[in-house]
């Protein structure tokens, strides 16, 4: 990990204020004055909404002025009969499994090509132009998800609306493959998923590259001398040594993949696309709250999203905690 803060292990982890009596003078006034505003803003806009949301999910609050009556778990019971919610839940489930898996695989593949993919006279080395690739691959990460959504809405648009993919298919004689991609319930959600992967891969290439560059070159030289092939080298050398980064990246990706709100909202519309086939929980929540003003119900969806996030984080932490390799 080549971040600036990685040296923090060398200092005591506990906060210290052992700087003599002078520092104790007025310490509490200082601490309070520094914490007051950040904690106040955080409490007002983050903590209190989260706590309220959990309570609201137990009420029947509807309408901008309606009262809140406590109804227990009735909203949650209703969720189970809501077909639309179940579609959204299924889609979130798919996103959480497929997006991290494909992104990590592609990221590892490209990062290993980039850093150790070339075998020449001087042993294992990165490809030429790897610095340029690293810059280019990272482009989607700095773009707003709104820009990406709009861009791909038009990539996959029908030809009469300027859709470039259908135009490309026609140009190479594959007219039959042209589809109203985002208008077809069989494709719409999967295209959003692909776009999501497109936007994430580059970031993980850069992340894994950083981890791979900290692997000592001698290890690769040794593997080469022992006659290990590329795949063997990757399995036995590269992967174990970047495994820590991979597992952190995996959890982070799973949490990122939960939030497909912007892409689905922009590419498929507020309804979640044709037959609402591309719906996701964030969008279902938004519709319940700000289109139908069913605030209790919307908050129940939010709590489900939170539980799903916690479960995913816990599961991945457990699964990914395999044996670690110490480099020393």
């Amino acid at each position: 990990m080549s971040t600036d803060v990685s040296v923090r292990n060398s200092v005591p982890r506990r906060p210290t204020s052992k700087a003599g009596p002078a520092l104790h003078h007025g310490k509490y006034t200082f601490v309070v004055s520094f914490l007051l505003v950040p904690v106040g803003i955080y409490g007002l806009f983050v903590v209190s909404p989260y706590l309220q949301a959990i309570y609201i999910s137990l009420t029947d609050w509807t309408g901008l002025t309606g009262g809140q009556t406590f109804v227990g778990l009735a909203n949650y019971a209703r969720l189970l009969d809501d077909e639309q919610f179940l579609i959204a839940l299924r889609n979130n489930g798919i996103l959480v499994v497929v997006v991290p898996a494909v992104t990590v695989l592609l990221g590892l593949f490209l990062a290993s090509m980039l850093n150790v993919g070339r075998r020449g006279r001087s042993g294992v080395e990165g490809v030429r132009g790897s610095a340029v690739y690293r810059v280019v691959y990272f482009f989607p990460m700095v773009l707003s998800v709104a820009i990406i959504g709009v861009l791909f809405k038009y990539v996959f648009a029908p030809t009469q609306a300027g859709g470039i993919l259908n135009g490309l298919l026609r140009a190479v004689g594959l007219d039959g493959w042209a589809q109203p991609w985002l208008g077809d319930p069989d494709f719409a959600f999967w295209i959003v998923l692909l776009v999501m992967i497109w936007s994430f891969v580059g970031f993980y290439v850069v992340l894994f590259s950083a981890a791979m560059q900290s692997i000592p070159k001698e290890i690769y030289e040794a593997a080469l001398l022992d006659g290990a092939g590329r795949f063997m080298t990757f399995r036995q050398v590269t992967l174990p040594l970047v495994w820590d980064t991979v597992q952190v990246g995996w959890v982070y990706l799973a949490i990122q993949a939960m939030d497909a709100f912007a892409l689905v909202h922009i590419m498929l519309g507020i309804g979640g696309g044709p037959s609402r086939s591309g719906d996701v929980l964030g969008l279902a929540l938004y519709r319940s709250a700000f289109n139908s003003y069913r605030f209790g119900y919307a908050s129940a969806i939010g709590v489900v999203l939170l539980l799903l996030t916690l479960v995913v984080a816990a599961v991945f932490m457990r699964v990914a905690r395999r044996e670690r390799v110490e480099l020393s």
């Binding site: 007002l44 806009f45 983050v46 209190s48 909404p49 989260y50 309220q52 949301a53 959990i54 609201i56 949490i255 939960m258 939030d259 709100f261 929980l281 964030g282 929540l285 938004y286 709250a289 700000f290 605030f295 919307a298 908050s299 969806i301 939010g302 709590v303 999203l305 939170l306 996030t309 916690l310 984080a313």
Partner: peptide
């Protein structure tokens, strides 16, 4: 770790 979506409804009113 908290999804921002959970906060949206109360946040709007706050």
């Amino acid at each position: 770790i908290f999804p921002v979506f959970l906060a949206l409804v109360p946040l709007f009113f706050v």
